[in-house]
Amino acid sequence: MLSIAMPSNVEIKAKVSDLEEFARKAAQLSQSEGTIIRQHDTFFNCSQGRLKLRDFMNGSGQLIFYERPDTDGPKLSRYSISPTSDPPSLKAVLSDALGVKGEVRKERRLFLIGQTRVHLDTVEGLGHFMELEVVMRPEQSVNEGQQVAVDLMEQLGVSEENLVTGAYMDLILKGHTEA
């Protein structure tokens, strides 16, 4: 069976204690103030990986399927994305077909540093986080991508004890079950 390689990136997620300091360092490294993006993600039940509909709250969105291990530190994420111009309609169909696992609302500030997308996220009900997404080039090894992430983590002052293992959806679900 012919399999076409999905795009991949190396990701790190961590809790951010000083929002202003992180934003200052990210702005300095990216030489920009970043772009503000509002996102409403709806996660659907699926048998493997994760399936989410990202609504940008402006009439556009993306259906995203991804697979990545739930470990802290740099990890490889494989994904596929399909744009949509009608997120509410697609959400209704997928909700009926698969059922909703949960929802995440966030305001994201995006900085581009080299081949890395740096996100400074304020997540409703969770607080402040950062995500690094090293967009892998075809010739790069996972180790090279992980090293880019670790180096950038150091430059941004992110300590290992602040690393987070799962997705925001996982954190929200854990919070709801522990509360």
Results as ranks from 00 to 15, higher is better:
105 R>K: 15
105 R>C: 15
106 K>W: 03
107 E>H: 01
109 R>E: 08
109 R>V: 06
109 R>T: 14
110 L>P: 07
111 F>P: 14
112 L>R: 15
113 I>F: 06
113 I>R: 07
114 G>L: 13
114 G>F: 13
114 G>T: 08
115 Q>M: 09
115 Q>S: 14
116 T>P: 00
116 T>M: 04
117 R>S: 03
117 R>G: 01
118 V>I: 15
119 H>P: 00
119 H>E: 01
120 L>C: 10
120 L>H: 10
121 D>G: 09
121 D>N: 08
122 T>C: 11
123 V>P: 04
124 E>I: 06
124 E>M: 11
124 E>S: 13
124 E>C: 08
124 E>V: 10
125 G>V: 11
125 G>T: 10
125 G>W: 09
126 L>C: 08
126 L>I: 10
127 G>R: 09
127 G>Y: 07
127 G>L: 05
127 G>I: 02
127 G>A: 07
127 G>E: 11
127 G>H: 10
128 H>R: 08
128 H>Y: 05
129 F>L: 04
131 E>K: 13
131 E>V: 14
131 E>P: 14
131 E>A: 13
131 E>M: 12
132 L>A: 04
133 E>S: 04
133 E>D: 06
135 V>W: 05
136 M>F: 06
137 R>W: 00
138 P>Y: 14
139 E>V: 04
139 E>Y: 05
139 E>D: 12
140 Q>F: 06
141 S>D: 09
141 S>M: 06
142 V>C: 04
143 N>L: 07
144 E>K: 00
145 G>I: 02
145 G>H: 00
145 G>K: 01
146 Q>I: 06
147 Q>H: 11
147 Q>K: 13
147 Q>M: 12
148 V>P: 00
149 A>R: 00
149 A>K: 01
150 V>C: 07
151 D>H: 09
153 M>C: 15
153 M>H: 06
153 M>T: 13
153 M>E: 12
153 M>K: 14
155 Q>H: 09
155 Q>M: 08
155 Q>V: 05
155 Q>R: 13
155 Q>D: 11
156 L>P: 12
156 L>M: 13
157 G>W: 12
158 V>P: 00
159 S>M: 12
159 S>Q: 15
159 S>K: 14
160 E>F: 07
161 E>T: 13
161 E>V: 13
161 E>D: 14
162 N>A: 15
